[in-house]
Every structure is written in structure tokens, then in C-alpha cells.
Design a protein around this nucleic acid. Structure first.
Lengths: 218, 218
DNA sequence: CACATTGATGACGACATCGTCAGTTACGAG
DNA sequence: CTCGTAACTGACGATGTCGTCATCAATGTG
């Protein structure tokens, strides 16, 4: 039983699991959650019975797929916002980048949209990060918020509403729409309209680096 | 073919249809949309084959159920906001009453929550009313909104986020939470914080009048 | 009072999905 | 090289859901 040796067998298992998750994410992205398990395994190019080596039920697979996708994206966001001084800008940049996500990585966006508000109250994913950022900005005196949790309600709703809008209106400029909504939210959170506008006009780091699928296997 | 005579036969048909819709709403309220048709008909106390006299598919029934519920509530909102001078107050009162809805009529609230953002972009239901109210307030110079459609994104998201929150935290004061969110939104839409607070402190008409289920049959 | 029309009924055949399991393949240890 | 273990495989029986249809009940008509 090699403790530090992710040897062949384990690697194969991880690869298979990742293939299943990837396939599930693809189906979720198409809005088809009622897909037979057989179809999922075929899409993942594994045998039918293999599914049950990794998950008990379809829902379990979906849950794993969503958690994987959001954790990956959340980590990316954290990476891209390190080093910023202004907590308000950290929040704004996270929101703006999430808005950009919808066009750059529609599959992740659809996952977000499909599971919707479940994710807003979840302990994993983007919600806890947003809450953390808002609270930091409040402590720093940048935001004026009566109740952080209630502000989160609107912020989370706005994320999903924006995803929905961009999905239904492909012709709309996603960056402009996202920045506009971010601006509104910053104003709501206590910044002046002018300051909100200024922050949303600052340049953004690029999303196109890594990480869209399941965690690399080794 | 009696034009003005909803005679016995038609009344019976309408009653049966209403029973199906009511049963569907109950199941939706429990989050169970994958219920066998047989169960729905049993809950409605009608025969299995009867279902197909009224709807082609389960989705059709659900669609009818949702439209019915939201139109009923929307009409009620309109009724309760007639006679108000300030368009900003019309919007605020609509939002605040919708917030109250979640505790008073959980079944309607759950319907809202379950279908989520689909309803935000729908042509029927609450979204068009909210848009109408916002546009009226903008024309009257009460709101300052860069893009009405994008403001709608956040407002719709906030409605659903609030529903989710109140559903997961039954101990929370629904009126206080709703008014706080409304206040935030009014501030976002261009009112001063003080004015937003004042508007959300005004008394509200009572929701407890009619209309929670499908339209009365005659 | 007999007949026609419309809606309601529930049993039935067709179909799809599920989870299992007995057998196969790949890896690694002795 | 051989054997044991762990993962993979796909066919099969069991289960459950669907939509139809022949029949029944209720209402309205001549």
C-alpha cells in the first residue's frame, strides 16, 4: 500500500473518475441533467458498470462535477486578485471576472446557471469567497453594508441573473454589461457612483490561463 | 355551443383542470418535479387517463401551473399598488410584498424559487411588471438607471436570492430582511439612502385577501 | 324517456433506465 | 514468470413510467 506512490492503478482510477466528471459537466452545460447513466459512461468512454465504482447515484456525480468546476474557478479568481490593495477592488474584480467567464467558458457558466441559487447558499464554491471579500471591504471601511448576508443575497442573484441574460442575449457585450452591473452593486454597497465607475474601468487580468476542466490527475 | 353558458359540463372540465394544476403546484412546492403522472392524478383525485384530456405532457402542466400562480399574484400586486403617486414607492411596495409572500404563501414562493431565472426573462409573470414599474420611475425622474434591463437583472436575482434565503433560514424576520434588501435596491436605483429607508418604512397593505390557488372556476 | 355528446376512467402493452454480477484486463509483488 | 488484487466491462433481469384505448358516467336534447 504505497502511501506516496500514486502508481499506475491509482492514476488510472483518477483518470476514469475525471472522465466521468468531465462528461457530466458537458451534459450539465447542455442543460440535460436527465441523461441516462449509460450515455454518460459512453461519453466518458468507459464501461457502464464502471460508473458504480466511483459514484452511488447520478446526483452524486453531478454534485462532484459542480464542486470541481466551481472550486477550480474560485481558486483561479483568488490567484488573479492576489496583491490588490483595495478590498473593494478585490470584490469588483472577482465579480467582473465572473462576468467574463460566461463567454469565455460557457460550460462553467451553464453549470453555474443550472444549479442556480443552490450554490448561493452552499458552503463551497464562489459564495464563501464573495462573502469573505465583502466582509473584508466592510472592515476596511470601504463598503457600508447593513447586513452582509442580505447584501450577499443580491450579489449572488445578480451573478446568476447576469449569466441568464448573457446566455439569452448572445449579441450583448458581456464585458460592458458585467461592468455596468458591478458598478450598480458597488454603488449599492456604499461607494459613490463616480468611484464605482472608476473601479470598474480599471484593466483586468486575463482569464485565459489554466483550469476549466476537472483537476488534472497528477 | 353556448357562448355565455359555462354549463355543467364546462364547469366540471374546469374544475378537473384546476385540480390538476393545484396538485402540480403542490408537488412543485415540494421540489418534486419528477413525479409520475399517476401520482399527480391521484393527488388531484382524478383518473390517470384524465390527465391527457387536459395536457399533452407533464411539462405542459407545470408551465400552466406556474403561469397561473404568477399571474394570480401579479394581479394581486397590481391591485394593491393602485393609487400610489410615487412610482418609486410602487416599485418598492411590489418588491416588499413579494418578500412577504414567501412566508405567507410558501407554495407560491417555492414555485418562484424552483423555476428560478427562467421566470426572470419570461414574458409572463412578475418580470414584466417590475420592468414596467422601473421604467415608469425612470421617466418620472425618481430612478437613475444606466440600463433598465441590467438593473432588472439584479432586481430579479435579488427576488430569488431572498426567496432562497428565507426558505433556508426560517428563523429570520422576513419583513425586516425584505425591507433591507428593498432599501439596498432603491439605493442602487438612484435614491439616497435616507429616502430609500423612509420609503421602506411606510406601512404596507395586507396580502391576506384572495388568490393563492388556481383561478376560481366560475 | 331515449339518445347523443363530452369528459372521466384505469388496465394494458411498449419502452427505457437501473443496478448487479460474473467474467476480463491491467498492474505489481514475490 | 506467475499469481493476486483491483479496476473495468457489458449483458441481463427487475423496476417503473408512459400514452392509449375501450368503456363508463354524466349532462343536455328532441
Amino acid at each position: 500500500m504505497p502511501e506516496h506512490a500514486p502508481s499506475r492503478v491509482e492514476q488510472r482510477k483518477a483518470r476514469t473518475r475525471a472522465a466521468l466528471i468531465r462528461a457530466a459537466q458537458a451534459f450539465i452545460a447542455e442543460g440535460k441533467t436527465a441523461v441516462p447513466i449509460l450515455e454518460i459512461t459512453q461519453a466518458a468512454d468507459v464501461g457502464m458498470g464502471t460508473f458504480y465504482n466511483h459514484f452511488e447515484t447520478k446526483e452524486q456525480l453531478y454534485q462532484a462535477a459542480v464542486e470541481n468546476a466551481l472550486d477550480t474557478f474560485g481558486a483561479l479568481l483568488d490567484e488573479l486578485t492576489t496583491g490588490l490593495d483595495d478590498p473593494a477592488q478585490v470584490f469588483a474584480q472577482g465579480f467582473r471576472l465572473t462576468g467574463r467567464l460566461h463567454r469565455r467558458h460557457p460550460e462553467l457558466s451553464k453549470v453555474l446557471l443550472h444549479f442556480g441559487l443552490e450554490l448561493a447558499t452552499s458552503e463551497n464554491g464562489l459564495a464563501p469567497r464573495a462573502r469573505r471579500d465583502i466582509e473584508a471591504a466592510v472592515r476596511a471601511g470601504r463598503f457600508t453594508v447593513g447586513d452582509t448576508e442580505l447584501a450577499m443575497v443580491t450579489v449572488a442573484g445578480a451573478v446568476l441573473g447576469l449569466a441568464q441574460l448573457l446566455h439569452h442575449q448572445p449579441e450583448r457585450d458581456d464585458a460592458a454589461a458585467t461592468d455596468r452591473v458591478t458598478e450598480d452593486l458597488l454603488h449599492m454597497l456604499g461607494l459613490t457612483a463616480a468611484e464605482a465607475h472608476e473601479i470598474c474601468s480599471r484593466p483586468l487580468p486575463d482569464l485565459d490561463t489554466t483550469a476549466t476542466g476537472p483537476d488534472s490527475v497528477a
